[in-house]
Design a protein around this nucleic acid. Sequence first.
DNA 1: CTGAATCCGAAACGATACTG
DNA 2: CAGTATCGTTTCGGATTCAG
Lengths: 138, 138
Amino acid sequence: MNITVADPQPHAVAKALKEIMQVPENGGGICPVRDVLDRIGDKWSLLIILNLGAEENLRFNELRRRVEGISQRMLTVTLRNLEADGLVGRTVYAEVPPRVEYRLTDLGRSLAGAVIGIGNWASQHAPAIAAARARFAA
Amino acid sequence: MNITVADPQPHAVAKALKEIMQVPENGGGICPVRDVLDRIGDKWSLLIILNLGAEENLRFNELRRRVEGISQRMLTVTLRNLEADGLVGRTVYAEVPPRVEYRLTDLGRSLAGAVIGIGNWASQHAPAIAAARARFAA
DNA sequence: CTGAATCCGAAACGATACTG
DNA sequence: CAGTATCGTTTCGGATTCAG
């Protein structure tokens, strides 16, 4: 199953990109795309969002197992940032041992939907990138 | 104008994400999404791709002016990486003063199409993120 | 189990100077 | 114009330790 953007003509892509990259006059001079990419463009944010989007909710260590290679520190730090941005919600259950569940907010889930396009692209074109890299190395 | 993914049901998003995040058995144990995000998840790659996607081609300093804040060094470095990944093409004209044009390859343009979803999301939800951040700061 | 706090090395990044 | 080279800084992120 794939959810993809309709494959547009090159010109349509260019037109859409021109509009997206414009800096709104009333926005204080900052491009919203820049703003958002600065937030989720780090090493772990998108991976966490994608994994959270695949489930209803996940506990801290469940999430840690899925995001292979992430350290405890970075998972904590990144989750706090995503929480501050309103993309991830955090629920603490007063039990012992403690249980904490993370889930995407509505905002975060809408982002996950947008990121599916990247995910599909990555799944389909990873071999092409690997091939290009091998070619370039020579 | 917007090119968006069809707004799917939450369950459809989850199902799509589960498939995307799976590690293929034959892929040597690496998730293609991880692989791609490690490449384009740096500070400048996506911005360069988006700007190149908005035009047929751009010269070095044209591109530099559009990607506000990038240093000459990082523009060079990032362009070389994108070239190595087969996303950007580079054409040198033997003139004086020298002229070098950069353009997306077909592969790069297909990625730009996928990133439009993020761009649209960013344009639409940047205020929501800013609001969440302000709320969280308190 | 879920964190916070500290330390420290590696990598990313920017500034500057120089070149064909 | 379009880079390359070098240097210094900053930031990122991993390892470890401690705690509720």
